[in-house]
Nucleic acid binder design. Structure first.
Length: 391
RNA sequence: GGGCAGGUACCCUAGUGGCCAACGGGGUCUGACUGUAAAUCAGAUGGCUCAGCCUUCGGAGGUUCGAAUCCUCCCCUGCCCA
């Protein structure tokens, strides 16, 4: 991928591009800053967009400085959120950071990464330092941040501590001497604060590198509450299924932002799809293969596809399913709960009444039914939950 | 410190003495349909020993035959005044 593509494909905004190009051409090893919030240890496919960017620049010889936001995590990033968060205890933060980094280094080159904890510098911050930092920004500046303004105007709680978040993140740039800081477009305010602070303190201001926010599988904002994310830790089969459940109109965007498929080829796909000459399903299958190959390997992608075709297209049984030992006759409701197919007996009854429970592909409609086994059987709930019963 | 408005199920919201396990939306689940775990449509969505019972409407008490709804105190949030 050439420099021009690195700086345009999957890039929302660079402040300023000229300045960054100059730095890149200077021959210096640049310090690429990226922070993360260890209160949310799971990376999803949205983060992947930015990580790939970082990796691409890393491959040009630059150093990544990964900042563990163990102090800002206790505040909670106010960006794009409308309520404050309760503080986390240090052990949780530490454990989360571990989990996060495991995933982070599946994409980013560990050998060219410097990991720094905010506590290195904020641990010995004094009130004098806080004065020095806070005196440089005004309330008006903070209220220019859309999230703060919105919460204030809507009469929602907004603590002074939260106002500090952008300042702490800005100070990180001073502490690690950042040349470029990465983030999603929702990070613009915070990253710019860092740039400004550097300038105020007579340092060379960092460049702001913003990657677009990837939309969720259903085209809405990607969010846990909508359950429209793909987690980096999702197993291949899960990823495959999730990609197949994606709305047709986001397919191309995913190709551009999350794969290395050449742009020319992607444009061709878009044309073919618009003209109705290609089934979007097949493009999604390709996307699933690409992504799983990148995150796992080609073999995992092949297996996941095989499984998907088997279970969902041909409606056959999955090749592997959890087993449950049933030695003596048992009421179906109890069985569903014990086998983990229903969360409560009430739910089990509901599932039966709605016709969602099948034993060897035969619907069980009687909640009083007793299941006895002489040979293995498959108990199924809905389309995708299976348990193999063995005597 | 004073005044006003709020805190309802996973989330948002309606409910201001019995018809309330609580309207509606989101989410989730199931069914139908399909190119798919898409879209669309329909239903369900506290628990249980299930025509009944138990637990739930910020917390603790109280009034009442009966409380999410009334009273008292407390905790939390926003606004206005100081």
């Amino acid at each position: 991928m050439d420099l021009e593509e690195i700086l345009t494909r999957g890039v929302a905004e660079i402040i300023t591009k000229e300045e960054l190009l100059e730095k890149l051409r200077s021959g210096r090893t640049l310090r690429l800053k990226m922070g993360f919030d260890p209160s949310k240890p799971n990376l999803h496919i949205g983060h992947y967009v930015g990580l790939r960017k970082i990796r691409q620049l890393q491959d040009l010889g630059h150093t990544v400085v990964l900042i563990v936001g163990d102090w800002t995590a206790q505040i909670g990033d106010p960006s794009g959120r409308d309520e404050s968060r309760t503080m986390l205890d240090p052990e949780t933060v530490r454990a989360n950071a571990e989990t996060y980094m495991q995933q982070f280094f599946r994409v980013v080159d560990r050998s060219r990464t410097e990991v720094r904890w905010q506590s290195e510098w904020f641990g010995k911050f004094t009130l004098a330092d806080v004065f020095n930092l806070t005196s440089r920004f005004t309330l008006g500046q903070m209220m220019a941040h859309e999230t703060f303004r919105k919460r204030y105007e809507q009469g929602l709680p907004l603590s002074l501590m939260e106002l500090l978040y952008p300042l702490l993140q800005a100070y990180d740039s001073i502490a690690v001497d950042a040349d470029v800081e990465f983030g999603g477009t929702d990070q613009k305010f915070n990253i710019l604060a860092g740039r400004e602070l550097q300038r105020m303190l007579g340092k060379e201001p960092q460049n702001v590198f913003l990657v677009p926010l990837l939309v969720g599988l259903d085209g809405r904002k990607m969010s846990k509450t909508f359950n429209n994310t793909i987690d980096l830790v999702d197993p291949p089969e899960e990823m495959y299924g999730k990609i197949m459940s994606m709305g047709d109109d986001v397919i191309i965007e995913y190709f551009i932002l999350t794969t290395d498929v050449p742009m020319a080829e992607i444009e061709e796909m878009e044309r073919e799809m618009k003209a109705g000459r290609v089934n979007p399903r097949d493009l999604k299958m390709r996307l699933a293969r690409e992504l799983i190959t990148q995150l796992y390997d080609a073999e995992a992608a092949r297996k996941a596809e095989e499984e998907f075709v088997r279970v969902f297209q041909r409606r056959e049984l999955p090749s592997e399913m959890p087993q449950f030992r049933l030695t003596e006759p048992k009421n179906i409701v109890d069985l569903l709960v014990e086998a983990g197919l229903a969360a409560s007996k009430s739910e089990a009854r509901r599932l039966i009444q709605q016709g969602g429970v099948k034993l060897n592909e035969e619907v069980i409609s009687d909640i009083e039914a007793t299941i006895a086994l002489t040979e293995p059987a498959v108990l199924r709930v809905g389309k995708r939950r299976f348990v193999q019963l063995v005597p």
